[in-house]
Write a protein that binds this DNA or RNA. Structure first.
Lengths: 168, 168
DNA sequence: TCATTCTTTCAATTACTTTTGAAAGTTCAG
DNA sequence: CTGAACTTTCAAAAGTAATTGAAAGAATGA
């Protein structure tokens, strides 16, 4: 398979994967493109490679930066901004995990805690079934929260550990 | 908080969580409703509780059954079909993991394996960057695949172990 | 068999999301 | 300052997904 073809296929595959996970297609495609390019790209480059508009490019690049998956790179003597993606997929995974935990899991846990306090007679089977379900889900949410935190933590200490060694 | 209010809030929260994870809102809401109800509900009941149409109800219930999250329950002497949800959230999580692995991860691994075989000179930095990225992602995908399989496996053996004890 | 009750399908509609591109905004060298 | 190079915004348009409800299809039992 030729590089150009492989590239196109990778971008398209990553794009539809993203879509299935509730990440917009263009965002995933820009991320894919930046991951496989050796050097940073400008907004123009991205527009040309993916055939998308300026606004779309800007918006999605901004969002990727927000998620911590892409960074702005300034090339000395150039006016344009360039962008490059994190290439270590483990780092990508922890960043996504951290971000989704913050945006989605934390609020859910808050709500579940409130729902625990539903009034009513425990002998009423509707009340009982509700309490049981919420308790069950709440336990699960807390367990998941702990697991994600550990995952993020372990990656962080690996990162700082490695960084530290460089200066030792 | 009153039960009715808590119920409504739980259904709505679960619904928007689903939407964020690429599961359609109605499907998640039906699942939530069935989880907190002590007894199975009919299609009519679901329509009334969630204010949705017959077609919508049918379609999403069918999909939930497909995912293994909901089952048809026949009540003796009744013509209608009733539905009830799995209430053990760990079982729900493994079922979802299994289903998504099958639908999403397995095809991605297949594609990545193909993309490994891109032609070209290793000294070309574009070729090198591409190969490196794919290799990296491929390793990650395999690791994830193994982790999910282990997770599913452990839950299964727990399930069959428990089941076996009942007949021993 | 037929009438009844329930389930499934699907084309049309409605609601939601993404994308575009022109215009406004910003930055900076000269 | 000024204007060229670049970035950001945003309202309109295009694209996608969910929902409805009426009609067709199955199953049941008298």
């Amino acid at each position: 398979m030729k590089l150009a073809e492989a590239k196109a296929q990778f971008i398209q595959t990553w794009g539809s994967l993203g879509a299935q996970w509730g990440i917009n297609r263009t965002m995933a495609q820009i991320h894919a493109l930046l991951m496989i390019m050796p050097d940073p790209l400008s907004a123009e480059d991205i527009m040309a490679e993916l055939n998308i508009s300026r606004g779309n490019t800007n918006m999605n690049v901004r969002e990727l930066i927000n998620w911590g998956l892409v960074e702005r790179v300034l090339i000395p003597g150039e006016r344009k901004e360039y962008f490059s993606a994190e290439k270590d997929i483990w780092k990508v995974a922890t960043d996504i995990a951290r971000e989704r935990k913050r945006r989605e899991l934390d609020p859910i846990i808050k709500t579940l805690n409130q729902l625990q306090e539903v009034e009513g007679d425990t002998k009423d089977k509707h009340v009982k079934a509700f309490r049981d379900s919420i308790l069950n889900i709440n336990k699960f949410a807390h367990q998941t929260d702990k697991t994600i935190s550990t995952f993020i933590k372990s990656e962080e200490s690996w990162f700082y550990g490695t960084l530290l060694k460089l200066f030792k």
